[in-house]
């Protein structure tokens, strides 16, 4: 185990050191902070009536239920955010179908963790873009961009 770690460290540091200076950099005056636990973003989407109603509905659900009943969702984004984003990115019909599918997958007790990338928070990353029926938008394990939420 220890040798493995050392090996990983050497490998990792080798990759890093070769690339750090491939872009010019300046002094870094940032200060160290502990990672914060963020609150949910309750802001409404005013782009049209549909999104406004949708985000309002979501906020009511968050305020009345989701924020009170504990951490139940193994996925990231959560089901409610997934639904809102799905409708925003497609349309109400497709969004509802995507949500129904997501809800089914969420209820599957035997989720295969190898299917999903695990995010920093320990959640399974399951982006909306993977279910828009556009192969170019699908991101697979290991090549996923950083978590968005």
């Amino acid at each position: 185990m220890k040798t493995k770690l050392i090996f990983l460290f050497v490998l990792f540091s080798g990759i890093i050191s070769a690339q750090t200076d491939w872009d010019k950099w300046e002094a870094d005056n940032s200060i160290y902070q502990l990672p914060e636990i963020k609150d949910r973003d309750y802001s409404l989407d005013h782009s049209n009536f549909g999104t406004l109603a949708l985000t309002m509905l979501r906020d009511v659900y968050w305020f009345g239920f989701s924020d009170l009943d504990g951490d139940n969702c193994p996925f990231q984004p959560t089901c409610s955010t997934f639904f809102v984003d799905a409708v925003k990115k497609t349309n109400i019909v497709q969004g509802v179908l995507m949500f129904a599918d997501r809800f089914t997958r969420d209820s599957n007790f035997f989720k295969s963790e190898s299917r999903y990338k695990i995010g920093k928070s320990g959640k399974l990353i399951d982006p909306v873009d993977n279910y828009m029926l556009d192969e170019n938008k699908i991101t697979i394990l290991g090549v996923l961009p950083d978590e968005t939420e």
Partner: peptide, 10 residues
């Protein structure tokens, strides 16, 4: 100083 701590350690 540049916040590149991995390289600094090296």
């Amino acid at each position: 100083k540049g916040g590149k701590y991995d390289d600094a350690v090296k």
